[in-house]
Design a protein around this nucleic acid. Structure first.
Ligand SMILES: [Mn+2]
Ligand SMILES: [Mn+2]
Ligand SMILES: [Mn+2]
Ligand SMILES: [Mn+2]
Lengths: 220, 220
DNA sequence: CAGTTTTGTTAGACTAATCTAACTTATTAC
DNA sequence: GTAATAAGTTAGATTAGTCTAACAAAACTG
C-alpha cells in the first residue's frame, strides 16, 4: 500500500505528465515543494515499489499500477470536495485543503458512500473530472475564455486554477460554474474582456482571469 | 501541532488514565501495540513538547494541554462515527476503523459542520460521550447488565467494548442502543442471564456479554 | 527480607522522508 | 563547439518512530 507521501508523489506525477506520460525531476520538485535530491531518492523508492519507470537522467513515468493508484487518490480528493460542497454546505473556496487530507483515508466504502449519496458525479466543484472506479475520466473539451471572441455566448464550465484567492475573487464577482456569459468586447491592448452575466453587466475581466476560466461556447 | 502518532498516544493516555490521571508505560505499550522502549522514548518526546508530565520509573500524566488535545481527538473520532452512522448510512460495527483515520484530520470547520448537521449530539453510536469543544464531557452513570438483578427492567445505553465482532454479535441478536430489556433470571452457576426484549423472548446472554452491556435501570 | 517476576530504561540499529553541499550530465546560447 | 546554465545525482546528515538485546529498578511472594 502506498504511503501518504507516495500517494502525493503519484498524484503529482499524474497531474504533471505530458502527452508521453513523462515528468521531469525538477517539475516534481517544484510541484511538491521539496528539494531535487529528495525527489531523486523518492523516485527510486517509487520504482522499487513498482509505481514508476525510471532511468538515471531520464524523465519519470507512472506504471499502470501507479496510474491506477494516482487516479484513485484524485478520485477521492474530488469526491470529497463535492461531498463537502453539496452535502455539508462548504463553499468551493474552502474544500481543497480539507480534501488534501481526506483523500489519503484508506476506506473504499467511505468514498463509495459519498459517490452514492452524491448521485455518481463526474465533475468536482471546480469543474475537474472525477475518475471512475477504474481510473478512467470523461474527456472534456473546454476552451479558455481568453481564446473566445467578442459576440460569443459561453457557459463557465471549469477552472484551470482553484486557489482560494482566485475562488474568492470569483465569489466577489458573483461568478460560479454554469453562469452564462456574454462577451461584449476584447481589448486589443491588454487582452482584457468586457462581459455580462446574471445581474452583472459590462464587467471587465483581466487576461489573467480570462485565461483561468474554461468555458463551453453556446452561440454567437 | 501534535503529529498523528502523538495524537494516538494522547488519546490512549486519556482513555487509560486512572482516577489520579496516571498511566503506566506497560499499559500504553499494550494499548498501542508497540514495545515498551518505544513508549519510553515517545513519552520523553511528549514531555519535551509539553503534552505530559513524566519522571523516570513513575507513571505518565497528561498536562492540561495534553488533556485538551486528547479530548479534541476523541471528540473528532466520536463525531465522525456518529456522522457515518446517522448521515452516511453505515452500521455501528463499521465505523470505528474509518473514524480512527478521520479523527486526525486538521480542519476544525469540518468537525463543526458535522456537529451542526448532527444537531450537537452528546453520545456516539456506541453510547460513549462526545467531549464538547472545551474538552468536557457529560458524566454518565450506567451500570453493567451483569450487576443487575432478576426482575429489573433496563434500557441498553452504552457498551464497554465496541469491537466489530461484539457489535456483529449484538446485531445478530437484534440488540441496539435504546432497546428495553426485561431480566427474567440470573444463573448462579455461570452468571449468564435470561432476558426478553422486542420480539426476542427468553434469550440467554453469557456473563462475558452482560459485562459489556451498560444499562439504565427503569424499574423493577 | 531474599528471590523471583514484572516493569522500565539504555544502548544501538533500522526505515522513511527530508535537507545541504558538492559534483556530474545535459541543455542552451553564443 | 566551447562556455555557461540548468537539471540531475551522490554523499552525508537529520528527525520521527520503531525495533531487539541487555540491564536496572520496583513490585510481589513465600
Ligand atoms: Mn482540489
Ligand atoms: Mn477540485
Ligand atoms: Mn470508536
Ligand atoms: Mn464509539
Amino acid at each position: 500500500m502506498a504511503s501518504q507521501t507516495e500517494e502525493n508523489y503519484l498524484k503529482a506525477l499524474f497531474n504533471l505528465a505530458n502527452s508521453a506520460g513523462e515528468v521531469n525531476i525538477s517539475e516534481l520538485s517544484t510541484q511538491l515543494q521539496v528539494s531535487m535530491p529528495t525527489v531523486n531518492s523518492m523516485v527510486k523508492t517509487l520504482q522499487k515499489n513498482g509505481w514508476v519507470i525510471y532511468q538515471k537522467y531520464k524523465p519519470v513515468q507512472l506504471t499502470p499500477a501507479g496510474q491506477k493508484t494516482a487516479a484513485m487518490v484524485i478520485r477521492q480528493h474530488r469526491l470529497t470536495e463535492m461531498f463537502l460542497v453539496n452535502k455539508m454546505g462548504f463553499g468551493w473556496e474552502e474544500v481543497h485543503a480539507i480534501a488534501e487530507q481526506v483523500e489519503h483515508i484508506h476506506a473504499p466504502k467511505f468514498f463509495e458512500r459519498m459517490d452514492e449519496l452524491l448521485g455518481y458525479p463526474t465533475i468536482d466543484p471546480h469543474g475537474s473530472p472525477i475518475p471512475d472506479k477504474m481510473g478512467r475520466m470523461k474527456e472534456t473539451h473546454y476552451v479558455s475564455l481568453a481564446d473566445c471572441e467578442a459576440g460569443q455566448n459561453v457557459v463557465l464550465a471549469a477552472l484551470t486554477n482553484s486557489s482560494t484567492d482566485f475562488l474568492e475573487f470569483l465569489n466577489s464577482r458573483n461568478l460560479s460554474l454554469g453562469t452564462q456569459i456574454a462577451i461584449h468586447s476584447k481589448e486589443a491592448y491588454d487582452q482584457s474582456m468586457v462581459v455580462s452575466y446574471l445581474e452583472n453587466s459590462k464587467e471587465t475581466l483581466s487576461e489573467k482571469v480570462c485565461e483561468k476560466l474554461l468555458v463551453r461556447i453556446i452561440g454567437e
